[in-house]
Every structure is written in structure tokens, then in C-alpha cells.
């Protein structure tokens, strides 16, 4: 042996530094990417402005801008944690980027941690933009519910990143692209995100309540409109997080 492993100093950067480097790299890549910014920032902003200035579709009880802002924050989480993550991971897998990073000191665990951290950073940016825009439009979030809202954003990020990895780690990149976009549109239209499920037809609204999108958006509305913790919605989101994480851990393939 040329080198004795027991006396060699650490050769890799510290774990925290590696994960932060990867998160910073992914965030930088995202901010340089016009289409991603469109989905992450422009579309949610348009949705908030559109909903605040019109009277339809019905958003149910509560001040319209308050209900809309909470739903749009849920939309931000879904676009950053699910759509954007699924597509980028799907193509990284196709082009062997996941394999390559797996042989660097970053490793597979560091890669996932970096992605989650980058996603949270994107969401912080999205929410900051939506908050400023919302305040301009007259949004009054319930101060008592802000901590609950943070809880839902974090739990929702977990569930949707796990779903994104489940999709990206099992299907072809083109299929991931198609499905991730389709799911985003479907959830936007009928997933109880922007239009609360109480405003959907009776049977549909009940069923939609079990979706992670509705769980997240219901939880955010309870928190930011009423200042309350919606435990049922939290259970739905956490349930999706547990199931998707277990499935992703079992089924995710790093090779295409």
C-alpha cells in the first residue's frame, strides 16, 4: 500500500461544506435557467395577481387575496420540490450525472441533501417574492399561523421531493418530463391547490383531500388565513412523505 489509511488526513471536504457546495451549485444553475425561473417565479406571481384582481373562480370563504396567497405558496412548493426537481433529476440520471457525483466525495447521500437544501432556498426566494407581491395586493397573513405555515412548507417539501425522486429514479427522462409537467397542471387545476377543494364538486372535493397537494394547500390556508394548525392536512402530507420516501429508497435507480 502506498498510503496507510489510518494515518492519512481527511481528503474530502467536511460533509457540511460538500452539501452546501452542491446546494449552491444547483441553486446557481437554477437561477441561470430562464425556463425554470418562469415556472418558479413568474407563473406563481401571475396566478396571485390574476386571482386577486378577478372574482372567479370562487375561492370560498375568507378574503380573496388571503386565500389566494396561501394557495400560491403551495403552488411554489409543488413547482420547486416536485416538477423542477423531478425533471432535473431525471435528466441528471439519463446523462450519468448521478453516477458521476456518486464517485466524488459528495456521494449519493450528499447529492440528495444538496437537492433538498437547494429546493428550500428556491422556495424561500419564491415565498419572498409572493409575500412582497401579496402585501402590495393587500394580503394580511395571520401572524399566529406563520410557524404552522413554515412547518407545512418543510413537510410539503419533503413529501414532494420524495415523490419527485420516486418518479425521476424509476422512469425514462422523457417520461419524467411529461408526467411531472402533467401532474403540475392537473394539481393546479383540480388538486385543491389554488382553488380550495371545498369549491370542487362534492365527491371530488372529498377525494382530493387525500392528495398531498390539497393537504399542503389546506394546511397553508388554515395557517395563514385562520392562524390554525390543520392536523388532518398535516397527517396527509406526512403520510405521503413516509410512503414516497420508502418507495423511493427502494426503487430509485441511479443508472438509466
Amino acid at each position: 500500500m502506498t498510503t496507510d489509511a489510518t494515518t492519512t488526513p481527511a481528503r474530502a471536504a467536511a460533509p457540511r461544506r460538500r452539501v452546501l457546495a452542491q446546494a449552491g451549485f444547483e441553486l446557481g444553475s437554477l437561477l441561470r435557467n430562464g425556463e425554470q425561473l418562469l415556472v418558479s417565479l413568474v407563473l406563481p406571481s401571475l396566478a396571485l395577481v390574476g386571482l386577486s384582481l378577478t372574482a372567479s373562480p370562487s375561492l370560498g370563504p375568507g378574503r380573496r387575496v388571503d386565500v389566494a396567497a396561501a394557495g400560491v405558496i403551495a403552488l411554489c412548493v409543488i413547482s420547486a420540490a416536485f416538477t423542477s426537481q423531478a425533471i432535473s433529476t431525471g435528466f441528471d440520471r439519463r446523462y450519468a450525472v448521478l453516477r458521476y457525483l456518486g464517485v466524488t466525495p459528495l456521494g449519493r447521500g450528499g447529492l440528495v441533501a444538496g437537492k433538498v437544501l437547494a429546493t428550500l432556498a428556491v422556495e424561500a426566494l419564491q415565498i419572498a417574492v409572493i409575500a412582497v407581491l401579496g402585501l402590495v395586493l393587500g394580503w394580511h397573513p395571520a401572524a399566529a399561523g406563520i410557524a404552522y405555515a413554515v412547518l407545512f412548507v418543510v413537510a410539503g417539501t419533503w413529501a414532494f421531493v420524495a415523490l419527485a425522486l420516486l418518479l425521476a429514479g424509476t422512469l425514462r427522462a422523457e417520461a419524467v418530463l411529461a408526467i411531472a409537467n402533467l401532474v403540475w397542471v392537473l394539481l393546479l387545476g383540480a388538486g385543491g391547490v389554488i382553488v380550495p377543494r371545498t369549491e370542487l364538486p362534492d365527491g371530488v372535493g372529498q377525494a382530493v383531500g387525500f392528495l398531498p397537494s390539497a393537504g399542503l394547500a389546506d394546511g397553508l390556508r388554515s395557517a395563514l388565513v385562520d392562524g390554525e394548525l390543520n392536523l388532518l392536512a398535516l397527517l396527509v402530507v406526512l403520510g405521503w412523505g413516509v410512503v414516497s420516501t420508502a418507495l423511493a429508497a427502494r426503487l430509485f435507480r441511479f443508472d438509466d
Binding site: 492519512t8 474530502a12 451549485f25 444553475s29 450519468a96 450525472v97 457525483l101
Partner: peptide, 25 residues
């Protein structure tokens, strides 16, 4: 672990370099 991987340099046939970025970055 990571320290071992840091001692080993790898160039894969499949490449694996992230596509959307510039070389020096």
C-alpha cells in the same frame, strides 16, 4: 466513505458531467 472517494479520481466513459453549466464553474 467520502475520504476514500476523495483519494480516487474517476473518469467515466459515460461522462456524467452536469450538462447545463460552463466548464470552469
Amino acid at each position: 466513505g467520502a475520504d476514500h472517494r476523495a483519494r480516487v479520481g474517476v473518469m467515466l466513459q459515460s461522462g456524467g458531467l452536469p450538462n447545463g453549466t460552463k466548464p470552469l464553474r
